[in-house]
């Protein structure tokens, strides 16, 4: 196997003032692949994502290893971290309605990523941004470039977000529920755009989601998280053969088109799921 992009071993995160750790010993590795992280609300998915970017003010992060390429992320200075964020690792946030600056032109916000990481003129950054807007299948990039966030739709906003986060050609992109704020009709479009860009450019992807069907279709491998821990790791195509009772419960709770109209199963949580493996 090629050298992994990311190696995480025994990652633990505690928010300031919290009595228990939000993330309790998460380990995984990531190659040039698409990894899904699934789990219920509050299980620590976003916390893991933000910890990788070291964007958790006030939280304490520890790990035996947190290796990204040749960098040990936990010992990196903040100054060095600034060169990682946006350039080598970036993150697509959930809702473009809030994640874009309301009073700046959409195109300038995209181009800013480039300006921040490469020595270049404003005009050059503009050209890069326009090309990237085209790459996320925005039909009239020149026009969209000059628009403000409130003037574009959610689907368009999320394409802009993808353009912004892929512009500097990072090695790893974390997508934290990238389509959950979107209309169902455009979700698939946006996911397909993200998917083809990530594959074409050989970018590693971590897709955080609630939706088992979504990660089944867009990921190679899936981590199942429960209460701050990874309870199971599987290839996406083996999802139906999951062993852990929590995962089985999740699968049973998925609605299926054409399935029997029985009431959806409700998870029956067992206290032993919380225990750490020795």
């Amino acid at each position: 196997m090629e050298k992994p992009i990311l190696e995480v071993d025994n990652l633990r995160i505690r928010y300031g003032g919290a009595s228990v750790e939000a993330v309790r010993g998460v380990s995984f590795t990531l190659g040039r692949e698409r990894l899904g992280i699934v789990g219920e609300s509050g299980s620590g998915k976003s916390t893991v994502g933000r910890a990788l970017l070291r964007l958790l003010p006030g939280a304490t992060i520890t790990a035996d290893t947190l290796r990204f390429g040749e960098l040990e992320l936990l010992t990196l200075s903040e100054k060095a971290m600034l060169k990682v964020r946006g350039r080598r690792m970036s993150m697509i946030l959930q809702d473009p309605k809030f994640s874009l600056n309301p009073i700046r032109r959409v195109g300038d916000q995209v181009g800013e990523t480039y300006l921040r990481h490469f020595r270049c003129s404003k005009a050059e950054a503009r050209d890069k941004a326009l090309a990237m807007l085209e790459a996320v299948k925005i039909r009239d990039p020149e026009r969209v470039y000059d628009q403000y966030p409130h003037e574009i739709s959610g689907g368009m906003g999320q394409r802009v977000m993808i353009a912004m986060m892929l512009l500097a050609d990072p090695d790893l992109v974390i997508a934290d529920e990238p389509t959950s704020a979107l209309d169902v009709t455009v979700r698939l479009q946006v996911l397909n755009i993200l998917d083809s860009l990530v594959r074409d450019r050989g970018i590693g992807l971590i897709m955080i989601s609630h939706d088992l069907n979504l990660v089944r279709n867009f990921c190679d491998r899936v981590l199942i998280m429960y209460a701050g821990r990874v309870v199971e790791t599987l290839a996406a195509r083996d999802l139906d053969r999951a062993q852990h009772p929590y995962t089985r419960g999740l699968l049973a709770a998925q609605p299926r088109i054409g399935g029997a109209r029985a009431p959806l199963a409700v998870l029956d949580r067992q206290p032993e799921w919380l225990e750490e493996k020795a």
């Binding site: 970017l53 970036s90 959930q94 809030f98 990481h117």
Partner: peptide
């Protein structure tokens, strides 16, 4: 606001985020 996080994710420093965004 979330756009402040976006700016940090892009690689802007704390000060740049504060003053420019």
């Amino acid at each position: 606001q979330e756009y402040v996080t976006t700016a940090r994710v892009k690689g802007l420093s704390r000060n740049q985020t504060i003053w420019q965004h």
